Simulated assay, not measured.
Amino acid sequence: MHSFDAITGGWDAVCGASGVHETLRLSAFRTVRRLPGPTAPPAHVVRYRCGCGDDHELLMSSVELDWAPIRSTFGEHFDLMTGRMAEDPDQGVELWWRSMRRGHWPVTLHCAHHRAPVPAWPSCLRALEPDDERAVSHLLVHYVCPLCDRQGTQVMRPQALELVPRLQ
Rank of each mutant, 00 (worst) to 15 (best):
W67E: 10
S99H: 06
L163K: 06
S27D: 06
A160C: 01
A43Q: 15
F78S: 01
R25N: 00
S3F: 06
T8W: 06
L163F: 06
Y143K: 03
W96Q: 01
A43Y: 15
P69F: 05
T39N: 13
A43G: 14
D90I: 03
W97L: 13
W121D: 05
P117L: 06
S99R: 09
H142A: 14
H138M: 08
T8E: 09
E94L: 12
S3N: 07
G103E: 11
E64Q: 15
H114L: 12
S27F: 07
H110G: 02
G83I: 03
V93G: 05
G16R: 12
C52H: 13
R71M: 13
D12T: 01
E22A: 09
T73C: 07
T39Y: 09
M156S: 07
G16S: 08
A68T: 10
H104E: 05
L80R: 10
A28F: 03
E76L: 02
H114R: 11
V155N: 10
D55N: 12
Q159P: 00
R134Y: 05
L26N: 01
D90Y: 06
F29N: 00
V32K: 08
D79L: 06
L35Y: 12
T82A: 09
T8A: 11
A28C: 11
R71E: 08
T73R: 04
Q151D: 12
L167S: 10
S72A: 15
P146W: 00
V144M: 02
V45Y: 11
M85S: 11
L140G: 09
M85E: 05
R34F: 04
R98D: 15
M156Q: 14
H138R: 13
P41F: 07
L128K: 02
W121Y: 13
P130T: 02
S99D: 05
L128I: 00
G152R: 03
L80M: 09
G152T: 00
P69W: 03
C111Q: 09
C148M: 06
G10W: 01
P42K: 13
V32A: 11
L140V: 14
V118A: 01
C50P: 09
L26S: 03
C52T: 11
C148L: 02
Y143T: 00
R33L: 12
C15H: 11
P42V: 10
P38S: 12
L80Y: 04
T153D: 02
Q154R: 07
P106E: 07
P130L: 01
P130V: 03
V136W: 01
S3E: 05
D54K: 15
V14D: 04
E64F: 09
W105G: 04
P36M: 15
A116Y: 10
D79K: 06
V136C: 08
Y48E: 11
L139C: 10
L125M: 03
R166W: 10
D90G: 04
G83C: 04
Y143W: 03
E22G: 03
E133R: 13
T108S: 15
M81E: 08
L161T: 05
T23A: 13
R126A: 00
H44T: 09
W105T: 06
T108Y: 07
S3A: 09
L24P: 01
P36Y: 14
A40K: 15
W105S: 15
E57I: 14
M100P: 07
H114G: 14
M100S: 09
